[in-house]
Design a protein around this nucleic acid. Structure first.
Lengths: 372, 372
DNA sequence: GATGATAAGGCGAACGTTCGCCTAACCGAC
DNA sequence: GTCGGTTAGGCGAACGTTCGCCTTATCATC
């Protein structure tokens, strides 16, 4: 930490030129000096360990090659995936990422924006679901720099990159219907969230299409956590013991549901099938391996960042992007049809539709399934 | 995005003062102007939406109130927790966080440092386990700004905040020994990693102390993923079917181990108890709920950032901090003793030590459960 | 009525860049 | 021997701040 940073002046002095000339050379402005002095300058920079001062650079060019990312809580695996994807895309284009997380209650969005704008970020990427219906957010994001969000932003003019939530619900419903289920329940996230409502809409529409009802007794609210999924599942079974399948709107809640069913002594999927959503990395290794709708979070982040960079560079760009989702079928709905969690994934409905099993098990899970 | 940013000059013009005076007032330099002009300046700033240019500010004060965080892969839940904790601590002290992730292979550490230094961060927090034994890293981190790491850094002079890995291994071993297990196996992470070796050292020492051997046949290598834990568990059982307990060095591998045991038809914990490490949020909701050593990742990040800020401010600071770890006992080792995954956690060894159960009618599942 | 203290705020310089224009030297050609 | 063109590099200004010192006006005091 001895003498900290060397400036252009230092480099220029050592090379015997003016600092402006050094600047030109170090910016790759080839044709402006002789090969000899060019070499001298580059050598001096190298020897002195010159690192351009991005502050000064940004001050004069008024662009910082830095993108601000606002997130609610990066401790959340899903949100973290977005950010990772976004960071990688940014880095590929020579940009850095400044992160700013809202307070626990999700209210400090404005403070985040301010913090980023003071640092003169070139653009803002919002990953703040809790603020999706706050009307002020739109104004903040429209204010000074280009923005892109991965959640709804009131008022428009902020492009959104997301996935097709209704399709997600539809996939889950059709998978269960295809397996012959008719008594189907669902565990949903907070109803204030758009994603909750959209997934439910798609889910319900598919059931309706098949003439299957979704009464309130088969709908339980939760808050995305495994604990809430656990409680919701118990509640569902208590309200209507005839339920044979459940769709949880995310894998954490599905994990809780599996735990509840296990504790209640209900076999999965024989007594009750479970479909999750998100396809977390551990989904194939839950007991039993969890069927889930895969959402490409990382790719969503990459796409969102790419779109933002296009906007910043005044390139053409879409106003809205929907990433594709797909269902990965595993044991929690298929039963014995799938035996190896490490094996190749199955997509969509099982190749051979079949009625629900009742046979008690030969191998495998039995130990944990006492009713036999 | 109309006219972008307003400068101090604009504010000053509107208030009818020089921009330097406006600067003083906006920096809270109270006693230097009359109350009236003070009000006028503040009003002008508010009306114009003035936001200080952090670039210019940093240029002259040579401090940016920005901390660089280098991480290997924030998609990893554990690493993300560190970063979240760090970000929150930074934010509490008015600092922002610039993140920079190494390439997939973990080699681009130098590029990350460079990127951060160009932006003149006030300090660097390293969370890059893959570089823990790269001798060059130490030199880079010592070079220009204060640094703190949450992993070993060769060469010293970079404070490290971490947890006591040997203690972690010891806790797991003693818990299993206390339950009467004697045929104990372990699934370890990559042996190149220090954490792997330390946890193994503590684990082995505790077994040694109890006169229990840990032959190579009871040791399986894996790579932290659930898939590798799954494979390792199958291997362990195949090599030595008499094993009655296993300690996996993280919860993902433990999750894979649970899946493998389930697939093999072995009851947990009756046939084989499982202890994990990390205490992921879903651990209480695995089937069965997983006993695990809790590591305070978030708090580690907070502590590391606090230490870094102390260093930056030339306050006194420790050279090494070890965060406390504790074992949370759940069904995967205790069996029926624990019935409610949502209930209060149990810490340490079970209140009443007991020999292993053999009761056949028991199911590995809550006795409270409707078997009626 | 000169003196000195205090209050209120102006002013120049510096931070490290980029950018566009300017200059000096050299060279060949008419 | 003057002209025009090219090559190599210098130079001033600007970006938006902070900081320390300077100036002016006001006012009580001797």
């Amino acid at each position: 930490m001895a003498q900290l940073y060397v400036s252009l002046k230092d480099v220029a002095a050592r090379a015997g030129v003016s600092f402006q000339t050094a600047s030109k050379v170090l910016n790759g402005n080839h044709k402006v000096v002789s090969e000899a002095t060019r070499e001298r300058i580059l050598a001096a920079a190298r020897e002195l360990g010159y690192l351009r001062n991005a502050l000064a650079h940004g001050l004069v060019t008024s662009s910082t090659y830095t993108i601000g990312v606002i997130g609610d809580d990066l401790g959340d695996w899903v949100l973290a995936q977005f950010v990772v994807g976004a960071e990688q895309a940014a880095r590929r284009h020579g940009h850095s990422v400044l992160i700013s997380t809202t307070h626990r209650d999700g209210t400090d969005f404005e403070g985040c924006v301010r913090q980023l704008l003071e640092r003169r970020v070139d653009g803002i990427l919002a990953a703040a679901p809790r603020s999706e219906d706050d009307p002020g957010i739109g104004d903040l994001l429209r204010e000074r720099v280009p923005a892109v969000s991965i959640h709804h932003v009131p008022g428009g003019s902020v492009p959104v990159v997301g996935s097709d939530h209704a399709e997600t619900g539809r996939l889950a419903a059709e998978h269960l219907l295809g397996l012959g289920h008719r008594h189907i329940a669902t565990i949903v996230g907070p109803t204030a969230r758009r994603v909750t409502r959209s997934r439910l809409r798609g889910f319900r529409a598919a059931l309706d299409g098949a003439g299957v009802a979704l009464p309130d007794s088969r709908l339980a609210g939760a808050d995305w956590t495994a604990a809430s999924g656990f409680a919701a599942m118990r509640e569902l079974v208590e309200r209507d013991p005839s339920v044979t399948a459940v769709f949880a709107q995310n894998d954490d809640m599905a994990t809780g549901a599996l735990a509840a069913l296990w504790q209640l002594g209900r076999r999965v999927p024989d007594d009750c099938a479970v479909v999750g959503c998100d396809d977390l990395p551990q989904a194939p290794f839950l007991v039993p391996p969890l069927t889930s709708v895969h959402i490409p979070f990382r790719e969503t982040g990459e796409t969102a960042m790419a779109l933002l960079l296009d906007r910043i560079n005044d390139n053409e760009h879409a106003d809205r992007v929907l990433m594709p989702v797909r269902l990965i079928a595993r044991t929690s709905t298929l039963g014995d049809l799938v035996t190896d969690p490490t094996g190749p994934e199955r997509s969509g409905a099982p190749a051979a539709k079949r009625t629900r099993r009742h046979a008690a098990g030969s191998t495998g899970r039995p130990a944990t399934h006492p009713k036999e």
